[in-house]
Simulated assay, not measured.
Amino acid sequence: MPDQMAVSGSQRDLDLLNGAPSQRDADLMDIVSGLKARQKTLPTRLFYDEAGCELFRRITMLPEYHVTRAETALLDLHRDEITADVAHDTSLVEYGASDERKGVALIDAAPDAITTYVPIDIAGPALAALAARLETSHPTLRVQPVEADFTGPVSLPAAGGGGRLGFFPGSTIGNFDPPLVRRFLEQARSDLADGVRDAPVRFLIGTDLFRDRSELIPAYDDAAGVTAQFNKNILRHVNRITGAAFDTARFNHRAVWNQQAGRIEMHLVSTVAQVVEVAGHGVAFARGETIHTESSYKHTREGFTALANQAGWRAERFWTDPDGFFGLHGLLAA
């Protein structure tokens, strides 16, 4: 949240020849089907266009948003433990790498072991900027970005002799419903193990932990309104993709705690009755009707470990902050 961008482009062309939808086609299908559902939805991945990545960067610095501070502190405090078993010539594969800050914390902890960095993200411009920065700051590091939607299969560059260490920071996995968490972990295990022989495959994943709603809601409805801007920006992205004319002034941001599901939900609330044309479809909104744009599940250590075990991973280590707000799970492919 690229510069394998040319490779990704070539793969997309092959997909088109083979009848698979392009990313834009997939976005269109998901947008239209989501907006036609009884509870209107939009794909969470559409938050992360260039403007969305910048807004999210601002969110991570807000006083209400603890995730980045807690995770950064954990990485700083435990990075030697986290990388202690990393073998020489290991590839660090970061999922949702809109910038390199967290990945670099691990790379700098084990520069002789982590020789290749593979950032994966759907936002091509952010990946290109990341690669350019690392060319200056870490000139001996092999950087092989992959522009892809990592909720599906990802074709990774060949691994070094030390295997692969997957890294999924920032609690982004909280956006996935529990069944999708398991499918993602199964797919990531397959992708990370592909082509790796006689070397370990590990995965370091950050999760926001379950706690009282009074400590959760402010992180999704900050006083400065940055999260509201981030939420509304998804409509601007939809406008560009579909040619729609969503007026963001006709929608309000809302964050709610769903106790039964154990998740924060973000919605965009239509302030008026309106009809918006989206890719040739008239989408009607009643006043007060919402688009559910994001779910952010909160996990317990035990619950997440159970999901990981079902997906073929074994929990090796766990680190958390003193308040128990955030956790880092160290997993080993079983």
Rank of each mutant, 00 (worst) to 15 (best):
D212L: 11
L141V: 08
T248G: 10
V181A: 11
G160E: 02
A148E: 10
Y220D: 01
V143Q: 05
V201Q: 02
R254P: 00
A249F: 14
G163K: 05
A219M: 06
Q144I: 01
G170L: 05
T172S: 15
I173W: 00
L130V: 10
N233R: 09
R197Q: 00
D247W: 07
P218A: 03
A188D: 01
Y220H: 09
A128K: 06
A159L: 02
L130F: 10
A128Q: 13
V181G: 07
L180G: 11
V146K: 00
D194G: 10
I205A: 13
F230P: 01
A132T: 10
F210D: 15
G174K: 02
L216Q: 12
E215N: 13
A148G: 07
T136Q: 13
H138P: 01
I234H: 07
L130Y: 11
T248P: 10
A148L: 08
G195F: 12
L141T: 08
A199L: 05
D177M: 14
R189T: 12
I217P: 07
T140I: 05
R133V: 04
D212G: 10
L130G: 14
E135M: 13
P179S: 10
A228M: 00
H237K: 15
L156H: 04
A131G: 11
G162Y: 03
I241G: 09
T227S: 06
G166M: 07
P218G: 02
R211E: 04
S171Y: 04
A199R: 01
D212N: 13
G152L: 06
N175Y: 12
N239K: 07
R254N: 07
A193P: 04
R197K: 04
H237R: 15
G170I: 07
D208R: 04
F184L: 15
D221K: 07
R164H: 09
T151M: 09
R164W: 10
F230M: 02
F230V: 02
A228L: 00
A245I: 09
R240H: 00
D247T: 12
S137C: 01
D177Y: 12
R133A: 01
P145S: 14
G152E: 09
P169W: 00
A159T: 05
D149H: 02
L235E: 06
F176T: 12
Q144H: 07
I241S: 08
L165Y: 02
D221W: 03
G163Q: 04
L130C: 14
Q229W: 00
P178Q: 08
P178G: 11
D212C: 08
P169L: 03
E147T: 15
H237Q: 13
L165A: 07
L185Y: 06
I241F: 03
G160D: 05
S190Y: 02
D212H: 14
F203W: 10
V181M: 12
P139H: 06
A129M: 04
N175K: 07
R213P: 15
V146C: 05
T136K: 11
T242E: 03
V181D: 08
G170M: 03
